[in-house]
Computed example of a mutant assay.
Amino acid sequence: MTPHHLQDKAFLLLLIAVTIAFGAILWQFHGAVFWGVILAILFAPLHRRLLKKMPQRPTLAALCTLALCLIVVILPLTVIAVSLVQEASTIYERVRSGQINFGLYFQQVIAAIPVWAVDLLDRLHLTSVAELQEKLSSVSVQASQFLATRVLTVGQNTLEFVVSFSIMLYLLFFLLRDGASLALRIGQATPLNEAHKRQLIEKFTTVIRATVKGNIVVAASQGALGGMIFWALGIQGPVLWGVLMAFLSLLPAVGAGLIWVPVAIYFLATGAVWQGVVLSTFGICVIGLVDNVLRPILVGKDTKLPDYVVLISTLGGMALFGLTGFVIGPVIAALFIACWDLFAPKHASPTTR
């Protein structure tokens, strides 16, 4: 081995080591860094427009973009979060005091089910009615305790949240102001073919914008519509249930139905027929239509990913990375497909070309 090759390998090893060490340092605030990068990518077109109007003042353009980001995205989320915490605390207190009894609700539904349906449940060895009621009561108590614990944890970690939020805003400002030059330097340092780098970067930014904007539009629409119909029907905690429906709508093919379907069944089983019919009709024709129409247009069309890949990558990403996985999963899937698309023609055999 020549000294030149040895130096190259030693430098490559050093480069990998310091990169891993730097990543470990950032990991503590990986959520703040991740969403800072995501917001910078989403608001980059707006920043470029402002920069054209004030080409000699990039700092002012970045500050204006940051202010618009605060007004459009962060302020509404803060208001919703405050309302969510208040309603979650109220519902938890009512569950603990017995004013809300999920076990009783389930018993009412079972009492309205025909005898043959109850016998069918027993024949299928699903479990007995009593066991189902006991399990549902246990799950409801655990869910309410988990929700209360989350609310308490948020309160205890206020300082950590403020620090992470400040880091995200600080990073977002510099990514908006210096993002173009930083991306250029990263591209120059990446040892790939120029055409491949350009294609991968375009794919990366396209998937992020389509996934975030598409999923957020679908989630916000379904959550708002679900909360609105719950409020109209007099169901307690419409903001809480709306937020839950918005969160669940991030899961393709599952969606907000996990919330409104059991409520509709309860209405129908307990004699509140018109409420059940209205909620079922609204859920199928309005809430469900949003998912079936908007998601393929906003997500699948731009990412050019099949629906099953979007579903699996979203579920897998959220299982590994939590809430941010609904972005990370499809991005990894899209880059996986893009890399193999670049690799396959280059290494295809002469007979297959």
Rank of each mutant, 00 (worst) to 15 (best):
K135M: 15
G276L: 00
A333I: 02
Q222E: 15
I113K: 15
L14A: 15
G179P: 04
V207I: 11
P58E: 02
T303M: 05
G257E: 01
A21E: 08
L323M: 05
A67T: 14
G98V: 06
L152R: 12
S137W: 13
W340A: 01
E93V: 07
L42N: 00
G283F: 01
L342Q: 10
F161V: 10
S313T: 02
P306W: 03
K9A: 11
V73G: 03
E131L: 13
L63I: 14
A256T: 00
F174H: 14
E160T: 14
V286C: 09
A111W: 04
F247A: 04
A130I: 08
I229Y: 00
V277Q: 03
V263S: 03
L46R: 01
L124I: 09
A130M: 08
L268M: 04
T158N: 11
G257T: 02
V33D: 12
I297E: 01
T190W: 04
H47G: 15
N157P: 08
V273C: 07
A269N: 00
I71M: 00
Q133D: 15
I80M: 01
H5V: 06
Q107H: 10
V254L: 07
A232H: 02
V18S: 06
T211L: 07
M54Y: 11
D178E: 14
L6I: 02
Q133C: 10
Q133M: 11
I91Y: 05
L26V: 10
Q236R: 05
T324A: 02
Q107I: 06
I20P: 10
A62G: 09
S89L: 13
Y170F: 15
A81D: 03
K52M: 13
L66E: 14
A319G: 06
T153L: 14
L171D: 08
A189H: 08
V73Q: 01
T90L: 09
G226A: 06
A210D: 10
S181G: 12
S249Q: 04
S166Q: 12
R353W: 12
I38N: 00
A44C: 13
T351R: 08
L251H: 01
N292V: 08
R57F: 09
W35F: 08
G234I: 00
I91T: 07
V207F: 07
V33G: 09
Q142M: 14
G316C: 01
R94I: 04
E131Y: 09
I113A: 15
T2V: 03
N215K: 09
R96I: 03
R177M: 10
D122K: 15
A195C: 05
Q188S: 15
K203P: 07
P191T: 07
